[in-house]
């Protein structure tokens, strides 16, 4: 009973404090607010979330828009956070990652006057206040595949993927096609070894798989295995061969053994779409796809381990992709078609 009274009293004190403050959080002078909800990685994950936050900060310095974020600590936070930002008068709310796909649908139906955008997900039926954002990852994978094909000395390169599916499929077939393109150009056969490790977090398994590949004759491995991919880079370091990073410039993990990285610039996509939204463009009800043309995928500018000639060739290739002269394949079917057209 005493505890009950204790808590009741505390609540009374709290409420009194609040009573003295202005309860309204709504923005005055109609300023646009753009916010994002992180996935479980948090805003300092040096990957996905921090990239998106960079994008929002860039947006804020370009246009003076108010930007903010909420971190999710548990999966049950997704829906609450997406809804919570609505109270704070946010106009566009970003959900980072397909894990929030269902929550975005629920939040968008309870807040029909707000706009939501989700990265890496495409709905079959997109509600009119939701925007899906996808990346043409096959384009950067194609370029790193081409670089790998031009650089390999053993005529054998590898690919290690996380869990098989549409998203990682873009990387695999883009990469395969890039290697095939290089092998055509060089007039020699290059073998591509492909393995999936059935996880995005199992670093030891990634390392073991990569070591096996390297001892079987591969000298370059591209990974699309999320966090587990660090194992691939470690294996390349141990064997003193090359790994190709993904999403971010991963060269600092092993400065002498990362050839290049297939970048996914979430920050640029977030910036572009938010700017469009602020300028009054209709963005809802569709899935937008971004690639090399919009500078949302690509490779880093500085690649100390790469032959400058190869880099220049890769840049030429990039132009061809931007001009639609080459359309990198994204799944098995389109890959077969691409290969026969070479």
């Amino acid at each position: 009973m005493k505890k009950v009274i204790a808590v009741l009293l505390t609540i009374t004190i709290f409420s009194t404090i609040i009573g003295c403050t202005n309860a309204s959080n709504k923005n005055e002078n109609n300023q646009v607010t753009v916010a994002m909800v992180t996935n479980l990685g948090g805003v300092n994950d040096e990957s996905y979330n921090s990239s998106a936050w960079q994008g929002l900060q860039a947006l804020s310095s370009e246009t003076g828009t108010k930007v903010t974020y909420l971190e999710s600590n548990q999966a049950t936070d997704y829906l609450t956070n997406l809804d919570k930002l609505a109270d704070q008068g946010c106009d566009l709310i970003w959900a980072l990652g397909f894990v929030m796909a269902d929550s975005v649908i629920t939040a968008s139906s309870t807040n029909p006057d707000l706009n939501y955008a989700i990265v890496d997900y495409s709905y079959d039926e997109t509600p009119s206040n939701v925007t899906g954002v996808m990346f043409r990852a096959q384009e950067s994978a194609f370029i790193v595949g081409y670089i790998a094909g031009k650089t390999t000395k053993t005529n054998s390169v590898g690919f290690i993927g996380g869990i098989e599916g549409n998203v990682i499929g873009q990387f695999e077939y883009g990469y395969r096609a890039g290697v095939a393109y290089a092998s055509k150009e060089l007039g020699k056969d290059i073998n591509v070894a492909v393995q999936y490790i059935e996880s995005f977090g199992d670093t030891p398994k990634a390392k073991a798989t990569a070591s096996k590949m390297l001892s079987d004759g591969c000298d370059i491995i591209f990974h699309a295995a999320g966090g587990a991919g660090i194992g691939v880079i470690e294996a390349a370091k141990d064997a003193n061969k090359f790994a190709i990073g993904v999403d971010n410039d991963q060269s600092r993990l092993a400065p002498n053994n990362v050839l290049t990285s297939a970048l996914k610039l979430v920050c640029n996509a977030v910036d572009i779409i938010s700017t469009d939204f602020i300028n009054g463009k209709e963005i809802g009800g569709q899935t937008l796809t971004y690639g090399l043309k919009e500078n949302c995928v690509g490779i880093p500018e500085n690649n100390p381990n790469m032959d400058p000639g190869v880099y220049n060739d890769a840049m030429e290739l990039e132009k061809k992709i931007i001009n639609d002269e080459i359309i990198p394949p994204y799944n098995k079917q389109s890959f077969e078609k691409f290969k026969s057209s070479l």
Partner: peptide
């Protein structure tokens, strides 16, 4: 009782 009504791959404890 709470969305998302499923479990997903986690790398750290959720802390409940």
């Amino acid at each position: 009782g709470m969305s998302p009504h499923n479990i997903s791959t986690i790398s750290v404890f959720e802390g409940n």
